[in-house]
């Protein structure tokens, strides 16, 4: 279990993580989602004691990780690919990490096998692709068969087969009762892996809920088309319902379910030519949530947002 309490980190005048509180429970996969630069990595680095919070605290299994006497069996962490000396081989790197905690050499062979690195265990890490480096990072995280697994953007650079494997691994670890925290900037990735989501934007927690609630919490949106649309606009508008004119015969209604809109139309004798509930994907929900919290806007993203 991971408990972040009012976690704050500032670098000079810039607040990177701002009063972040959340709990990551065992037995499920928690997705840590946010745009690039939202403070995900900094938060994760504070969880494992590499960065010191400016204020607030974070506990792993009820304790400060820096005091852990069994660090690699308690927490397995992947922070960035290639946090390994370039001149080392995977085998030497893993053996050296295993040695700190007195783990047997056989465990090194197991994680090499598990991550598909057995064939390259004597090759230098410097020549590895991002994907291979990522696999070595995951092997390092799994080395101690830890109770808590923290993976920062684990699917970066992995091929589709690797992506599916990480997903399966995360689900499997959670099924074993372990605490799993995975960060990503892609909602589509989280949608397939996580049970629970903590969404962060500009260093603040924007949402903390089971993934199912994510869509339900959002208001329904319906496209309504009618030659008598003005009547419907007056009716719905008088009830304070949010409307957006799309063209002279079409509006987008936010709030009421499509059935209620249909009923209002019937009550007022309005003939509808179209009544279409918009399928809200998690991606939409995420975009909406973080639209104003994106640190680095690109024009392409802005255009896409405008198009939806």
């Amino acid at each position: 279990m991971i408990q972040a309490q009012q976690l704050t980190k500032t670098y000079g005048a810039k607040t990177v993580v701002d009063q972040v509180s959340f709990t990551v429970n065992p037995g499920q996969v928690t997705g840590f989602l946010g745009p690039n630069g939202a403070g995900k990595s900094t938060t994760m680095r504070m969880i494992v004691g590499l960065a010191t919070p400016t204020s607030g605290q974070v506990l792993v299994n009820g304790r400060d990780f820096r005091k852990s006497q069994h660090p690699i069996t308690e927490v397995g962490t992947l922070l960035e690919a290639k946090s390994v000396h370039k001149s080392l081989t995977p085998s030497a790197h893993l053996r050296s990490i295993a040695a700190t905690a007195g783990l047997p050499k056989s465990r090194v062979a197991e994680v090499l096998e598990l991550t598909g690195l057995t064939g390259v265990r004597r090759k230098k890490v410097g020549g590895f692709s991002l994907g291979m480096g990522q696999r070595l990072g995951i092997a390092t995280a799994l080395l101690g068969d830890p109770q808590v697994l923290i993976l920062d953007e684990p699917v970066n650079g992995l091929d589709p087969e690797g992506v599916a494997w990480v997903r399966q691994l995360a689900r499997q670890q959670a099924a074993l009762g372990k605490t799993v925290l995975i960060s990503s900037h892609l909602m589509s990735e989280m949608a397939q892996t996580a049970d629970h989501l903590v969404v962060i934007g500009r260093g603040r927690v924007m949402a903390d809920a089971p993934i199912s609630e994510f869509i339900d919490n959002g208001l329904a949106q319906t496209i309504v088309k009618s030659s008598e649309i003005e009547v419907l606009i007056n009716v719905l508008g008088s009830q304070g319902i949010q409307l957006r004119r799309i063209d002279e015969r079409t509006v987008e209604v936010t709030g009421p379910e499509s059935e209620i809109i249909g009923r209002r139309a019937l009550e007022n004798g309005v003939v509808l030519s179209e009544l279409r509930p918009l399928q809200r994907t998690l991606e939409d929900a995420y975009m909406e949530l973080t639209r104003d919290a994106v640190e680095y806007h690109s024009n392409i993203v802005a255009e896409n947002n405008g198009g939806k």
Binding site: Q69, G144, L176
Partner: peptide
């Protein structure tokens, strides 16, 4: 599976 028969203890020591 990543499970192994005996749970790993893994106490970190100066010698380690």
């Amino acid at each position: 599976t990543t499970q192994i028969q005996t749970p790993l203890r893994g106490k970190v020591t100066l010698l380690g």
